[in-house]
């Protein structure tokens, strides 16, 4: 898994707001193809590189030039881990909606939305702080990320 350079922390916050909006639209419409696209996006960011995140490009070209520059940088590892957690919930949600298990789809999407919103509004990454808990009770989910 290639390493990403540290990033301007406001980029991921913007990205988290966009993710929150996408997940809210999925909840309201049940449009599983949109959730499938979000799942692919989570997977690309978590397993390949954060640079593949289109919201990151929107941030760099449209928003960052309007903001005061900051020297603050955030490590990429927690961000990618968060994308991995998002991937798991979005995948379960997509499978739920696509196979007619709408309740499963709704619950998984709602949980992903909780995490995305906490990240966007407060900069909190639940999965990152609870990594030890995840590793203890869902080792298969946490371990591939730690390699």
């Amino acid at each position: 898994m290639p390493k990403d350079a540290p990033v301007d922390p406001r980029g991921p916050r913007f990205s988290a707001w966009m993710t929150t909006v996408v997940l809210a639209v999925v909840l309201l419409t049940g449009w599983w193809r949109l959730l499938a696209a979000q799942t692919v996006l989570f997977a690309m960011c978590a397993f390949i590189s954060l640079k593949l995140n289109p919201w990151g490009h929107v941030y760099r070209f449209a928003i960052q030039p309007r903001l005061t520059p900051t020297t603050e940088r955030e490590e990429a590892a927690p961000l990618r881990f968060a994308q991995g957690v998002g991937f798991v919930f979005a995948l379960i949600g997509t499978l739920g909606y696509a196979t007619g298990l709408t309740t499963l789809g709704t619950v998984a999407t709602a949980l992903a939305l909780v995490a995305a919103l906490l990240n966007a509004a407060l900069g909190l990454c639940l999965g990152c702080e609870m990594y030890l808990l995840l590793r203890r009770y869902a080792p298969a989910l946490a371990r591939p990320q730690s390699q």
Binding site: A24, L27, L28, T29, G30, T102, T106, V107, T109, A110, L111, L113, V114, L117, L118, A121, L122, L124, L126
Partner: peptide, 23 residues
């Protein structure tokens, strides 16, 4: 309609977790 309730529920849960963790 379920989606609306799920969205409102998610917003409420996120708010509660946020307050709890900040405290």
């Amino acid at each position: 309609m379920t989606g609306v309730w799920a969205l409102l529920g998610a917003l409420a849960v996120a708010g509660a977790i946020g307050v709890l963790l900040k405290v």
